[in-house]
Simulated scan of single mutants.
Amino acid sequence: MSTTPAEQCSILIVDDMEENLVAFEAVLGPLHQRLVRAQSGEQALKAMLRQEFAVVLLDVRMPGMDGFETAANIKRLDQTKDVPIILVTGTEAGADYAYRGYAIGAADFITKPIDPWVLRTKISVFLDLHRKNRQLALRAVAADTERLTEITERLTRIEVLLRDRREPDADGLADRIAELERSVGTLLPGPVEAE
């Protein structure tokens, strides 16, 4: 599966053990995405605030801030609350791990030893969702921009019509419309050309 740089997403992998990070990188490498490492909950939170991630692969058992605390902190922040988290647990994990993880907002669990195919499949689902959400957001911005451009063009035409009229109040009204047009224009991503 080859992706262009524009289609690449970032995946945050969090584990305190170097060998686990290396193993995750080896398993996820064939997905051709940007892999970002963190070796603690604190490093993970800093990384989450610096860039956008499509998904977080988070070990539950870490010294200091464990995976549950890290996930809870990620879900508390407006900037990161919607990023899906896959918690990685050992075979000793019981039902209370699942309950606790889902209660704080984890999207999924995977148990060690990890089946590479299962992990890549799960991650791929979240990558696809992330790309689709990004496309929807871009379409919404484009639709809003198109609507604002249309409003600006209408205001410009009204302003021109009012300025062409020779009534005493027409200039004041045209000035107010021009001011409104400028206000709408500031909402657009680029300069708006008047007709």
Rank of each mutant, 00 (worst) to 15 (best):
L87F: 12
T152M: 09
V56P: 01
A174G: 09
K112C: 09
R37V: 02
E181F: 00
H130N: 10
T70G: 01
L35G: 06
E18K: 13
M65V: 11
V88S: 08
T4D: 10
A143M: 11
A44K: 04
A170Q: 03
E19C: 09
D96F: 02
D128W: 10
K81A: 12
T186H: 12
L148F: 06
G101V: 12
L161G: 12
R139T: 02
D175L: 05
M65F: 05
E146N: 11
F53K: 00
K81V: 07
V83Y: 03
G94M: 07
L119N: 05
L188D: 02
T152K: 09
G190Q: 11
E25S: 12
F53D: 00
A38D: 04
E153H: 11
L138N: 11
V55H: 08
F53Q: 02
T152V: 14
V60T: 04
R157L: 12
L49R: 14
Y99V: 15
I114V: 15
Y102R: 10
I151Q: 02
V14L: 06
G67Y: 03
D78T: 12
T186I: 01
M65S: 08
Q33D: 04
D144R: 13
I104P: 03
L136S: 07
V36L: 11
S40K: 05
Q8T: 10
Q51R: 13
V192W: 15
A178R: 11
F24M: 15
D66C: 02
A140W: 05
I11H: 03
R131Q: 14
P30Q: 09
A98K: 12
D82I: 00
E19T: 13
S2F: 15
P63Q: 07
T156S: 15
T152R: 06
L162S: 05
E92A: 14
S10P: 09
S40D: 05
V36E: 04
A143D: 10
A44G: 02
Y97I: 01
G185L: 05
